[in-house]
Every structure is written in C-alpha cells, then in structure tokens.
C-alpha cells in the first residue's frame, strides 16, 4: 500500500464523541477578542509529545471520552496520554502513556475512557493542519482554527524531527475528590463573607454542561453583597465566575476574553489542567491559601 514519498497522514475512521486538534493555543491576542484556546491538560499533552520525540508545542489530538480510530498512511510513532483508556494497534494491545510504533497502513484505536475525560494522542511529526493566528488549536467558542475532527477526514502529519524517547511516565489522572487551590478574584468583595466561607468549605459537583469553555459546578449558592451590574472585564484561565443563576463556573481555555459577571476566585494555573479530567458528578473542593 505504501508508496515512496507518499505524504504522512492519519485517516480518521471514527472521530469518537469529540476530537479536536490542540496545541498551546493563541495567548497574546485577548485584546482582539481572541480566546487563548489550546489543550486543556497541558501536562498530558506535552508528555505525549515528549514520548514521540516532538517539540513540546506540536499539535496533538484531544479526544473526549475516547472512541477515536485512525489509520496511519506511513509508519509513525504515537503516544496516548491523559485519561485512562485502552490503546490498540490493529488487534494488538499497546501501552497507554508509552511510545507506540504504528506500521504504515495500520489502525490505531483508542478505547472508551475508563477514568478521566480527555486523552491526548501525539504522532511523531505532529498534526500538521494549517495554523490560524499562530496556532493549530480548535477554539470551540469562536470557531477559530481547524474544524472539529470528523470521521473520514484526513489529518496531515509533519516530518518527524527526533527519535521517540520511549520513556514512560505515570499518567496522573485525578481520582476521588479534586482540590483546586485558589486565590481571591477581582470581585471577591462583591460577595458576602458567607459566600467566601461557602466556597472554601463546600463540595461542588461537576455539571453535565461542562465543556472547553468552562467547568460548570452545582452546589451551595454564593450570595453577593453587591448586586449591581458589572461592566464586562477581562478574564483569566481559572477564573471562578458566578453568573446570574448562582452556579459557579471555572473558566477553561476556550473562555470568552471578557465577561460581565463577577469573578470570586481564581484557580491556580497549575491546578486548572486537572479540570480537564473531571466528569459530570465528580466532586470538587476549593482551597484558599
């Protein structure tokens, strides 16, 4: 089947629930209304790149809940990291969070996710779709970047630049209660003292409508002391915003650049990535310094 000089690509036989191309995103353009976007779990995504010998910023596939099936046009190395799932090359089981050799014409399949939400598939050479504003990330809020991956599409793969490292590192997927460290946000003084105590001491459940824009949470209401309307203002990743319905949400990478509801707290950037692996119903607690 393989022809000398044939371009390297991955044919998508099944795109699963939601698969997007992601890299480190488009920071630096928020003043134009452009969201940051980019992989939600940077630790898992960059590990996948290291395993296959890519530069850290190479584009990977972010796959929600698994079910991704790809056919490689040429021999490549892949690595699947992040959420726990079975990985097969053809019928042969392959290692999760390890460098996996895929012969030309072989099929790589990512099973259903057992724990966590998002797995990352890196391929040696990186996913080489055309960048938009310096990034290959699909921004699900603004629509910038490549389209969501669909079954039947063909994803170009760049030339491999280094030998795969082959090293295996543990894939840290949170289990049980997730504790998110946070500090006060710009409008913490718009909330009652009770709201601050409630956020610091209560359990919140991840809502089913969580997505790349934000982790939406159900739990005790967070009463405001200032009830006026807030002029829209800039948002950071990890901002804990409390909209009119009182359900807090933690903004993730596809968040709008500005928002008109008060931000009570900000989750430490080193903990925001853990939000990528939380499922509806999972319990979240906030810890103040």
């Amino acid at each position: 089947m393989t022809v000398a000089g044939r371009s390297r690509s991955l044919r998508v036989l099944d795109a699963g629930v939601l698969t997007t191309v992601q890299d480190a995103g488009r920071p630096g353009l928020a003043h134009l209304g452009v969201p940051r976007s980019g992989w939600l779990d940077p630790a898992a995504a960059t590990l996948a790149n290291r395993l296959v010998g890519n530069p850290e910023g190479a584009a990977v596939l972010e796959c929600v809940l698994g079910g991704l099936v790809l056919e490689a046009s040429a021999a490549v190395t892949v690595a699947v990291t992040g959420a726990e799932c079975a990985v097969h090359v053809g019928r042969r089981a392959a290692q999760h969070a390890g460098a996996v050799s895929v012969p030309a014409g072989s099929v790589v399949s990512v099973g259903a996710i057992a724990r966590g939400v998002r797995c990352y598939l890196a391929v040696s050479g990186g996913i080489a779709v055309d960048p938009v504003l310096g990034s290959r990330s699909t921004d699900t809020l603004s629509g910038l970047g490549p389209a969501v991956v669909t079954s039947g599409s063909v994803l170009p793969v760049g030339p491999a630049v280094a030998l795969p490292s082959g090293a295996v590192a543990a894939a840290p997927v949170p289990g049980g209660v997730t504790v998110l460290r946070c500090t006060p946000g710009p409008r913490y003084d718009w909330f009652t003292d009770e709201a601050l105590r409630t956020l610091a001491t209560s359990a919140y459940q991840v809502g089913p409508d969580s997505d790349r824009v934000g982790l939406r949470l159900d739990g005790p209401a967070l009463p405001r002391s200032v009830t006026g309307e807030l002029a829209s203002e800039g948002l950071v990743v990890g901002a804990v915003q409390v909209p009119a319905d009182g359900r807090p949400l933690v903004f993730l990478n596809d968040h709008p650049t500005t928002g008109g509801y008060p931000v009570l707290a900000v989750v430490d950037c080193s903990d925001v990535g853990r939000c990528a692996q939380l499922r509806p119903g999972d319990e979240v607690r906030f810890r103040w310094p």
Binding site: P27, G28, L29, A30, H31, P186, A231, S232, E233, G234, L235, V236, T257, T258
Partner: peptide, 15 residues
C-alpha cells in the same frame, strides 16, 4: 505581560 486586555472600566494584565 502575555496579554493586556482593556475593557470598560478595567485593564487586565495576564501572564
């Protein structure tokens, strides 16, 4: 700063 984001009454300095 990675991002400087003006708005109606604020400027956010991020990164």
């Amino acid at each position: 700063a990675t991002d400087v984001v003006p708005a109606a009454r604020t400027v956010l300095f991020d990164g």
